[in-house]
Write a protein that binds this DNA or RNA. Structure first.
Length: 463
DNA sequence: CAGCAGGGGGCGT
DNA sequence: CGCCCCCTGCTGA
């Protein structure tokens, strides 16, 4: 306490600690929370104030979000990382396994968490000298900021001098932590429903009712076996209200053939903030990601090439509908298949990227980045279609058999099997095909038998 | 080799 | 968004 001219300066000795403690307590009790972060199906009611204070990204997001209690769905951020980051933001400290550090940093950079991804006190001198975000340059990656380095040192050292209890330590296997927190999830989900205003701010879709997030998740959590976790995860992230629209006409009636089960499949609309994120991350998180790939991430097997897609907008909200009911056509352990499919598709996608086929996936700046793989496209509808390869969603059902497809096109193509329609006919023989590709394949057989003389359009048999 | 299916890109509306 | 074209892989005759 200092006094001068009769004025007393009252100092609250442990103000910071108390303040942080109160904030954490408020968060624990979900008091005054005004934003909910949704991550891997978990919901984190938090305070805009804290997020805005700790992240310019969130600050900007809330600036553009008039909604009272938005729900921000963060895709491709592990809930363990999210919890760690929240602990970091609320407590100023977080414990992280060394093997999870790179991934955490990556998440922090995506969210522009001050002190982890960006300096909490930007060096003004450097700002004037270099660009506005010197910490985001590649050069800077090679030499982490003092803040991060200090934190790394702290985290790698066993003596964590913090009096604060360690946060939920990120599990070695990110696929399993979800179980351990399920009861918590449910409480969060229920609290979610208690919010007075139901307008959600979703990364992928700014205006979606909250119930669309929580209900499918709970249903999935209750009904699915642990083995379906990957599937559950997909469901949780996804909303479902648009399902209705597409699902209604998903079963196409061809030639008046019988109806069938109504499918409530569908998809969601485009995203808004991912683009913002892109613009705010002009530099790809290459190094951090590569770092992360060296870790225990399940993606390392196929991400390990270090070849990253252009935008790499992790928060691209390509969540589709939450209706993942197992259709009769889908036999076998769906969840397990799904997991395998995820890897397989990812490999396919990677092959596409690396093989490239001259498409320029890597270098071109495409708008939409699949959150599950490297696939990028300029077309939102193509992305939704592609995303179904990860979710396994097949909203289009054949009215004559149990066939289901992820696209209307495939269903139409399939239905020719029933109708016998073969619109593609060979100009050389009487061959007809229901599939244009098959016709092309067939024509190639002719090409092997005939050559066309440049002087005469007539084909000559060669052998 | 044909049939079927999955998946990506381009283009018009 | 829907449609179309394309390529590819798998399977069975």
């Amino acid at each position: 306490m200092m006094a001068s001219d009769g004025m007393l300066s009252l100092s609250w000795n442990n103000h910071k600690a108390t303040f942080c403690h109160i904030l954490s307590t408020l968060r624990e009790k979900e008091r005054y929370t005004d934003v909910t972060l949704a991550c891997e199906g978990k919901f984190y009611p938090v305070h805009k104030l804290v997020l805005s204070t700790c992240s310019e990204y969130f600050e900007k997001m809330f600036e553009h979000t008039p909604c009272k209690h938005p729900v921000v769905v963060l895709k491709d951020i592990k809930c363990a990382d999210m919890e760690a980051l929240l602990s970091y933001m609320y407590d100023g400290v977080v414990s992280v396994l060394q093997q999870d550090l790179a991934r955490l940093i990556k998440a922090a950079e995506l969210l522009q968490i001050k002190g982890l991804a960006v300096p909490d006190e930007p060096p003004l001198k450097e700002l004037s000298k270099k660009n506005a975000y010197p910490w985001s340059s590649r050069d800077d990656r090679s030499s982490p900021h003092p803040k991060r380095r200090r934190r790394e040192d702290m985290m790698t050292s066993t003596s964590q001098g913090s009096s604060l209890p360690p946060p939920e330590s990120p599990p070695s296997s990110p696929q399993h932590h979800q179980e351990s927190n399920q009861s918590w999830d449910h409480s969060k989900s229920h609290s979610q429903d208690q919010r007075e205003d139901g307008v959600d701010q979703r990364v992928g879709d700014p205006v979606e009712p909250a119930v669309e997030f929580s209900s499918p998740k709970q249903e999935a959590s209750h009904n699915q076996e642990p083995v379906d976790e990957s599937l559950v995860k997909e469901e949780v992230i996804e909303g479902s209200e648009d399902n209705q629209g597409e699902g209604m006409d998903s079963r196409i009636e061809y030639g008046g053939m019988g109806g069938g089960d109504s499918n409530t499949g569908g998809e969601e609309q485009g995203s808004k903030f991912p683009h913002q994120l892109d613009t705010k991350h002009p530099q790809p998180l290459h190094e951090a990601v590569v770092e992360a790939l060296a870790g225990p991430s399940g993606m390392q097997g196929w991400l390990g090439t270090g070849e990253l897609g252009g935008g790499f907008s992790m928060l691209e909200g390509y969540s589709e509908d939450g209706n993942q009911e197992v259709h009769p056509a889908s036999t076998g352990p769906h969840g397990t298949q799904q997991s395998h499919q995820m890897v397989g598709r990812a490999n396919d996608s990677l092959r596409s990227v690396l093989g490239g086929a001259g498409k320029g996936y890597i270098t071109s700046k495409k708008k939409h980045q699949c959150p599950c793989c490297f696939y990028t496209t300029n077309s939102h509808s193509h992305m939704r279609e592609h995303y179904r390869t990860h979710t396994g969603e097949k909203p289009f059902s054949c009215s004559s058999c149990s066939y289901q497809s992820s696209t209307r096109r495939d269903l139409r193509k399939h239905f020719r099997v029933h109708t016998g329609e073969k619109p593609y006919s060979c100009s050389v023989c009487l061959y007809r095909s229901a599939n244009s590709s098959d016709l092309k394949k067939h024509v190639r057989t002719h090409d092997r038998l005939f050559v066309v003389s440049p002087l005469s359009p007539q084909r000559k048999e060669v052998d």
